[in-house]
Simulated scan of single mutants.
Amino acid sequence: MPASLPLALRAMAYNNAWANHRLLSACAGLTQTQFEAERAGFFPSLQATLNHILIVDHFYVDALEGGRLGPAAWANRIPCPALPALKVAQEAVDRRLIAWCEALDDAGAGRTIAVHRGSRVQEERADRLLLHLFQHQVHHRGQAHAMLSGTGVKPPQLDEFFPADEAPLRAAEFAELGWTEQRVWGEG
């Protein structure tokens, strides 16, 4: 377990990216029609739900980086209509979030982030903003996971628990993403 809040937040950023990777990789087994199909959930399709995750990442990662994107993030509710483009865009914003969290130290975790909300600027501590973002993404990935279970594609495991006999699977996925366990957990 990480010894500090910045290390824990960094591990959460990696886990967030890994869960996105696993879910989007599983969705690659769907046709475009299945991806767009109306389903029960807060958003009406896998396409809409997964694009919402991307949009919210753009909104908050931009704020963390000092940007002023604000509500313009929602100008296009489906910025990536097809899964291949969505996967590329999600991986890119996930890398930005990881990079931001890797640079985080104890002082930075408590610093104030300006979140541009259009008519006002909300000030939020970085650690609280990150915890909110991670919770939001888990919430909507869970909805997408449930939607995926209504298709012929088996939903993937999305948390960090893997039995010992599945460690090679995790290692292979981490290698595909360019990571190691040591990097994720800040060891070595």
Rank of each mutant, 00 (worst) to 15 (best):
G29S: 00
A75I: 05
R170I: 08
R39Y: 02
A109D: 11
A63Y: 10
A126F: 07
R39K: 06
A3Q: 10
R95K: 07
R125Y: 11
E181H: 14
S45F: 03
E160A: 13
L86S: 01
V56K: 04
Q157C: 09
R95C: 04
A107H: 05
E176C: 08
Q137H: 12
E91R: 14
S119I: 15
H52M: 11
G70D: 01
E173Y: 03
L7P: 10
Q137S: 12
A48M: 12
Q122W: 12
Q122S: 14
A109T: 11
A164Y: 00
P168K: 02
R96L: 09
E173T: 05
C80E: 10
V153F: 07
M147G: 02
H136I: 06
C80V: 01
F134M: 09
P2S: 14
N16C: 03
R96T: 02
F59S: 01
A17M: 00
G152Y: 03
L177C: 08
A26S: 07
W179V: 02
G110N: 12
L104P: 02
L50M: 06
L7Y: 10
R120G: 13
G70S: 09
L148C: 00
H21M: 06
G67I: 02
L131M: 11
A13C: 10
Q157Y: 08
L46R: 04
S4D: 13
L54A: 01
R77P: 08
N15V: 14
S25Y: 06
V56C: 08
S149T: 05
T31W: 01
G66I: 04
G29H: 01
L64Q: 06
V88A: 11
L7V: 13
P2F: 14
Q137N: 11
P156N: 07
G66M: 07
R170G: 05
L5S: 12
H132M: 07
R141A: 06
T49W: 00
Q182E: 12
L148E: 00
L129S: 12
D94S: 09
A40E: 04
V184G: 13
H136E: 08
V93R: 03
A72G: 12
A13F: 06
L133I: 13
V88H: 11
E166T: 09
R95S: 02
D165W: 13
E102G: 03
A26P: 07
P2Y: 12
L7H: 14
E123Y: 15
A63H: 10
A3M: 08
L169C: 11
Q182F: 13
L30D: 07
L169W: 03
A146Q: 13
A171S: 04
A17D: 00
Q32D: 13
R111W: 08
H52C: 00
I78H: 04
A40V: 14
V115I: 10
S45D: 03
W18V: 14
D165Q: 14
L46D: 02
A99D: 06
G70E: 01
I113T: 12
D57G: 13
A72T: 13
V93D: 02
N16Q: 05
D62F: 09
A99F: 05
G118V: 09
P155I: 02
L177H: 08
